[in-house]
């Protein structure tokens, strides 16, 4: 016979541990938010909205405009999602509906491996291998043919917001694809068969059963990919060219640019001696954090709205 009071004590003790663990996470989040805010304050007070909308960044003359970095983050992530979304869905649909059973494990293993590769490796690969290839075989021919359109004008540097978007695409595709695969596989087989039994083709089953069912999950997977793209630092820093000319001096996608994360990563060491410089980088970090938070709020909002159909 076990001692009842001892069991109750253990039960309460266990509950307490769970509560503490949860509390720690909440406290860490609030502390992080607070300290970012506190460190951003000097710059926010001094520069105000210039940190959001200003186009120049020169610590020597105390100019801290974050717009190029903020836009760089938004645009590179947006392009990456625009590329990665259809590619990922195609992979997931092929995997669940058309791929022979024997090949499936190979594909899912490759997806997992790709998702697990450290970002610095993507960065090095993008910098040394992809950049010259893209420059020679993509950027130069395009600039030569439709370079009169400002969005595709020269010169071709290789390192550019376009290359960063491309590397981000490659990084987030396995994430979105592998989650989508799992979601597609969870479609109730009974419902797929019901649709087949009505004379539907594979495509019609996908359209009328699989995709309506997976909609929320695909949205969640895409948001996860977007989060990764927004926050990615190392790989982007290595391939984006870290230049402040985009988009105000050159709007071309082949122009080198920067993002919030690469700005912070590349300037943080030198900024520690300059309070305003440091605080301005912190403000950018705060903006990025607010981005991430609002994205997850928007997701919740959309998820509520998007029921089936």
């Amino acid at each position: 016979m076990k001692n009842i009071s001892k069991i109750i004590f253990l039960e309460n003790f266990f509950k307490l541990i769970l509560k503490i663990a949860t509390l720690i996470i909440i406290v860490i989040f609030l502390l992080m938010f607070y300290s970012l805010f506190e460190r951003s304050m000097p710059s926010l007070m001094e520069n105000g909205f210039y940190i959001l909308f200003g186009s120049s960044w020169d610590p020597n003359i105390k100019l801290f405009g974050g717009a190029p970095a903020i836009l760089g983050t938004i645009i590179s992530s947006a392009i990456a999602i625009a590329f990665a979304f259809p590619i990922s869905l195609s992979i997931a649909i092929f995997y669940t509906e058309y791929c022979p059973l024997r090949v499936r494990p190979i594909i899912s293993e490759i997806m997992n491996l790709l998702a697990a590769i450290p970002s610095v490796i993507y960065g090095i690969w993008g910098l040394w291998t992809i950049s010259p290839i893209i420059k020679l075989n993509f950027q130069e021919p395009i600039i030569a043919s439709i370079g009169f359109i400002p969005l595709f004008s020269g010169p071709a540097y290789g390192l550019s917001i376009f290359l960063a978007s491309l590397i981000l695409t490659i990084m987030i595709t396995p994430i979105i694809a592998s989650i989508s695969m799992d979601i597609f596989l969870k479609t109730p087989i009974l419902l797929k068969e019901a649709m087949f039994a009505l004379g539907a083709t594979k495509w019609e089953v996908l359209r009328h059963v699989v995709i309506p069912f997976a909609r929320r999950g695909i949205l969640a997977a895409t948001i996860l990919g977007l989060g990764r793209a927004l926050g990615e630092t190392m790989a982007v820093t290595m391939v984006i060219g870290n230049s402040y000319i985009w988009p105000f001096q050159s709007i071309s996608l082949f122009s080198p640019a920067t993002t919030i994360t690469s700005k912070i990563a590349s300037e943080f060491p030198e900024s520690v001696i300059d309070l305003m410089h440091n605080s301005s980088l912190m403000s950018l970090a705060l903006i990025l954090l607010l981005f991430s938070i609002s994205i997850s709020f928007i997701t919740k909002f959309i998820e509520k709205g998007v029921k089936y159909r």
């Binding site: 009974l190 019901a194 039994a197 009505l198 004379g199 059963v209 309506p212 159909r309």
Partner: peptide, 16 residues
């Protein structure tokens, strides 16, 4: 399958 319809063991209306 259009000419030969089917009803399943478990009722499976499309819930969406």
């Amino acid at each position: 399958r259009r000419k030969i319809g089917m009803v399943f063991q478990k009722p499976n209306p499309f819930p969406h």
